[in-house]
Simulated assay, not measured.
Amino acid sequence: MKKILAAALTLLALAGCSALDRMMPAMVASDYYQKTQTGMPLERKYTAPGTFHTASQTFAGGRQRFKTYKVWYPADLPHSKQTYPVVVFANGSGVAYYKYEAIFNHLASWGFVVIGNDDSSSWDGSSTSQSLAFLQQQNQHPDSLFYRKLDLNRAGVSGHSQGGVGAINAVGNFANSHQFKALYTASTPKHALALALKWPYNVGKINVPYFMNAGTGPFDGGDGKDPDSGIAPLTSLRDNYARISGNGLTVMARRSHADHGELLYLPDGYMTAWFRYTLMNDSEAAQVFTGAAPEIRRNTQNWQDVQIKR
């Protein structure tokens, strides 16, 4: 069995990112949140758009590996006296920002400044670190729309698939990693697959609140016969969960009846709640993950294998 698994991983590695590309949606629809099934009140609330009207701007990346940044923000930011927490996204394989703009826009509607880029190889975290540094520069430049509008002490990072690896590496490997105060990943490839694809990561470096999830479908969860099969099987989640300590809060869960590509957008309500809680101290969003009966535990319609530790 180990030889068969090794051969399969090698074939996938030789195929590069293309095998993962085919599992991704061509585009996340602008009304995805209307079609997302929600199982509990808070999941429903945070899956819906927030109260902020939004705007966006595109900026030149000026780098060989990626050409463009795009930033989404509450439309009243230029006239506001408050500062806004930020969320940086690490792309999945073949999924540049323009393929899932609706998710960025959704998060901005909840009061965040959100940045994406068109990096197609996000695994090492460098483009994610550079995105955060770009926002830092904008926050310090008097001619920038974002001048003194960003709270870089409240920064979060999110990644799906290859982007999950990139988000983990962004939190642990760079000079500005300490600015990230919350981490979210979906369908992060298991270590054996990540190493076969030459995408190493080390969850032992994580020291911030972390919400990890994956799907139960066959691409993510495997065929049910081999517990280690699939891109992000339960064994991988449990292993990563067990390796983390001292970061305040770690949440592990699987989205039921959902597979790899769908994990880009189906958990969006709880991703939004996660950042609202960890970066904004939203007491209602906190109820999804904390207290005697966190909603995510009770939401058995959509979630399973939930574990929570501090």
Results as ranks from 00 to 15, higher is better:
Ala155Ser: 06
Phe104Asn: 04
His53Pro: 09
Ala253Val: 02
Tyr201Val: 05
Lys81Trp: 12
Lys190Trp: 00
Gly62Arg: 06
Leu266Gln: 10
His79Asn: 15
Lys81His: 13
Phe66Thr: 05
Asn299Ala: 15
Thr58Cys: 05
Asp119Gly: 10
Gln138Val: 06
Pro209Asn: 07
Thr54Glu: 10
Asn153Met: 07
Val203Trp: 10
Ser144Asn: 09
Lys70Ala: 10
Val203Leu: 03
Gly116Ile: 01
Lys225Asn: 14
Thr216Tyr: 06
Ala292Lys: 07
Val157Glu: 08
Leu132Tyr: 06
Gly39His: 00
Val87Ala: 02
Phe174Asp: 06
Ala102Asn: 03
Leu42Glu: 05
Phe146Gln: 07
Asn105Ser: 03
Ser93Phe: 05
Pro200Ser: 08
His191Val: 11
Leu193Arg: 04
Tyr210Met: 13
Ser127Ala: 14
Asn139His: 13
Trp274Gln: 02
Ile206Cys: 02
Ala170Trp: 01
Pro233Phe: 13
Trp199Tyr: 09
Leu193Ile: 06
Ala108Arg: 01
Gln138Phe: 08
Asn117Gly: 04
Lys3Pro: 14
Phe104Leu: 09
Asn213Gly: 11
Tyr147Leu: 12
Ala13Thr: 07
Trp199Gln: 11
Ser129Gln: 10
Pro142Val: 04
Asn247Pro: 04
Ser93Met: 00
Val288Cys: 04
Ala55Asn: 07
Gly261Asn: 09
Leu183Tyr: 08
Ala258Trp: 05
Ser129His: 04
Tyr210Pro: 07
Leu11Tyr: 01
Thr68Pro: 02
Glu262Gln: 15
Ala232Leu: 13
Ser229Arg: 13
Asn105Lys: 14
Met24His: 00
Asn207Gln: 15
Gly62Phe: 01
Thr300Gln: 12
Thr51Ile: 10
Gly16Val: 11
Pro200Leu: 10
Leu263Ala: 11
Leu42Val: 08
Val165Tyr: 00
Ala60Gln: 09
Asp226Lys: 07
Lys3Phe: 09
Phe289His: 01
Ala258Ile: 03
Cys17Arg: 13
Arg238Pro: 06
Gly217Pro: 12
Ser80Ile: 13
Ser122Leu: 07
Ala102Gly: 08
Val165Glu: 03
Lys3Ala: 13
Ala273Leu: 11
Tyr241Met: 05
Leu249Arg: 06
Leu145Ile: 15
Arg44Asp: 15
Tyr33Gln: 07
Gly261Asp: 11
Leu234Lys: 08
Lys205His: 11
Leu150Arg: 02
Trp199His: 12
Tyr33Asn: 06
Pro294Ser: 05
Val288Arg: 01
Asp31Lys: 07
Ser30Ala: 15
Ile244Ala: 04
Trp72Ser: 10
His260Thr: 12
Ile4Gly: 00
Thr290Glu: 15
Lys45Glu: 05
Pro41Glu: 01
Tyr277Val: 11
Lys190Leu: 05
Arg22Thr: 14
Val86Asn: 12
Arg255Asn: 08
Gly92Met: 01
Gln130Val: 09
Gln130Cys: 01
